[in-house]
Write a protein that binds this DNA or RNA. Structure first.
Lengths: 145, 145
DNA sequence: CTAGATGCAAATTCTTTGCGGTCAA
DNA sequence: TTGACCGCAAAGAATTTGCATCTAG
């Protein structure tokens, strides 16, 4: 959260728009692919630099979900997420964070607590369908034996 | 979780021992540094390969905490963690995971839920102390003006 | 006009892989 | 003895940085 004002370049505007319209929360390379359709000459370093700048200015937030790639979210309010263990898709959970959890844990450890993260793990609708189809195909193969 | 038996080489034994005796849950390079003191010729690739093998055999688990590096834990039971936002240290939280959370979220999203992760964010005792010292030093500087 | 932003290429960091020699069972 | 394992070096994948050029304000 910096105090200097944010220079709104074409690249930054498009990056913001693409993050906002993304289905779920994109990773840096997903932002790149989306933005590149509109600004074909944009470079990956601009993506990374602008994502960081936008974070610094509080326009987006990084989601540090439990996987190697960072995801970016245009909704800067604190909220929980669900993550697909198959495709990595990250989606919002429509609930307010439970502040009582933090309070409950405060006495259980010697950390100075400043927040918490909760992540649901599972299969997203698309991957559920894919799994079901895979299983159906397996059943046919088994039956053929 | 593979069915073939695990060949217990010297490297694997030492890796396991070092993870078990580590204060908190080490990353791959922390395991490397610790193991290297006892096996100076071990290579980083052995560390990565053995960490994966040990995971596959259920001897350790990977902690996918909200930061880029993976942490390794010799306690394979499901549990929550606290992570220091300053130094990255990851420590156990002494509570049973709340299974009701998963149940509560099941109806709130269209994912097929298979688990959840909860992570407390804060300053570990060592970093709290460092912060206090830093602030104290700042006060002196301010007062001198 | 000019500080800050961009594109490109090269560098870093973390992790994985190919390969010839080695070792646990 | 021998298949799995190891160390080394090189490759990959994700991200960051240096630098000359461009552009928003």
């Amino acid at each position: 959260m910096q105090n200097q004002e944010l220079r709104m370049t074409r690249q930054r505007r498009v990056i913001l728009e693409e993050i906002r319209s993304f289905d779920g929360h994109p990773t840096a390379d997903e932002v790149y692919e989306a933005v590149r359709k509109r600004l074909p000459r944009i470079s990956m370093s601009t993506i990374y630099r602008d994502l960081e700048t936008l974070c610094d200015h509080g326009r987006i937030q990084v989601l540090e979900v439990g996987c190697s790639k960072k995801h970016f979210d245009a909704d800067t309010k604190d909220h929980y997420h669900a993550r697909c263990i198959r495709c990595g898709r990250v989606t919002n959970l429509p609930v307010q964070p439970f502040s009582y959890l933090e309070q409950a844990f405060r006495d259980l450890c010697d950390y100075k607590v400043v927040g918490h993260r909760l992540e649901l793990l599972g299969l997203c609708p698309a991957c559920q369908k894919a799994e079901e189809e895979r299983e159906a195909a397996e059943d046919i193969t088994d039956a053929a034996k």
